[in-house]
């Protein structure tokens, strides 16, 4: 009984922590983008206010599927969170978590897709079809990288891959396999939907894509979902390429560095069309990833 309560408390704590941290990161990103554009920018805590405001607003539903899609998107990312070590803080460790995480992240996207089907808005459909197509684009190079790493260290748990880089910082995959880390960084930008690869949310073109019909509380929920997604993707990158960390503070710091770099890259480029984005992913990141994989295997 005590064990169950302890475990549930852990779930809640890790979820709330990731939400809060993700929202803080979003605020930092808005400030950085503002400074790059020579603006003052909103305060760092702006996303918290946005979420509070959105949960205070009315919301209109478009039927059961719409509600279920939003819940599935949030639930999918929360479930993913439990399999990723944050520093030394993790709930489940077993073989195969890398593959499990890739699967569970897809559930969140499918939840969004379901919500858009429920809303019946054509712009939302265009947005989500682009998001899923882009997933096809970046997951291929990412899987090549992950399988190469799994082959190299003979373990398929995120924790194991993190432990394999322990010792000196020269053991980090960032320095051991820099090409791979660069590819994963590009993939990370694509995963987070940042600027060159943000054709699925394109606000001025398809009215923010998948979330076009979500107002009020639904938008607040999707904002929380987005914040957890950010933490998952950054945590995966830090665990796989920056050697993880022994405590949560250093881990957060490493995530912050990756996030700031990704934001800066993101604010420099214009937007790819969706087909150009996929072509790019299947040409350069995939090619380099395969080269690096061949290097590892032989």
């Amino acid at each position: 009984m005590i064990d169950i309560i302890y475990r549930i408390g852990h779930f809640v704590l890790i979820t709330v922590f990731s939400m809060a941290l993700g929202l803080l990161f979003m605020g930092i990103a808005r400030k950085i983008v503002a400074r790059i554009q020579k603006r003052y920018g909103p305060p760092v805590y702006q996303p918290y206010l946005d979420v509070l405001k959105l949960f205070g607003k009315d919301a209109i539903t478009h039927g059961f599927i719409f509600d279920f899609g939003a819940i599935m998107a949030l639930g999918g990312v929360i479930a993913t969170l439990f399999f990723i070590p944050l520093g030394s803080w993790q709930l489940y460790s077993m073989e195969g978590t890398v593959i499990l995480v890739i699967y569970l992240l897809a559930i969140a996207s499918l939840g969004m897709a379901m919500g858009t089907v429920g809303s019946g808005n054509p712009q939302a459909s265009v947005g989500i079809s682009r998001a899923l197509m882009q997933m096809l684009g970046y997951e291929l190079p990412y899987l090549v990288i992950l399988f190469a790493l799994i082959y190299r260290y003979q373990t398929s748990s995120v924790w194991g891959l993190m432990q394999a880089q322990a010792g000196s910082f020269l053991n980090w995959n960032l320095f051991a396999y820099p090409l791979m880390a660069a590819v994963a960084f590009v993939v990370l930008i694509g995963m987070m939907g940042k600027k060159p690869f943000d054709s699925m949310i394109a606000p001025s073109e398809i009215g923010s894509g998948p979330v076009v019909e979500s107002g009020g509380k639904y938008l607040g929920m999707l904002l929380l979902q987005k914040s957890i997604t950010i933490i998952i993707e950054l945590a995966l990158y830090v665990n796989l390429f920056l050697g993880g960390a022994e405590n949560i503070l250093i881990f957060t710091f490493k995530m912050l560095i990756v996030w700031v770099l990704a934001t800066m890259f993101g604010s420099l480029f214009p937007r790819f069309r969706i087909e150009d984005g996929i072509k790019f992913f299947w040409k350069w990141p995939l090619g380099i990833a395969i080269l690096q994989a061949i290097y590892i295997i032989t």
């Binding site: 603006r39 019909e213 009020g216």
Partner: peptide
């Protein structure tokens, strides 16, 4: 945006 006012994409 320094006053917390930003553009919205859709009426919702």
């Amino acid at each position: 945006s320094r006053f917390g006012i930003g553009p919205a994409a859709t009426p919702r």
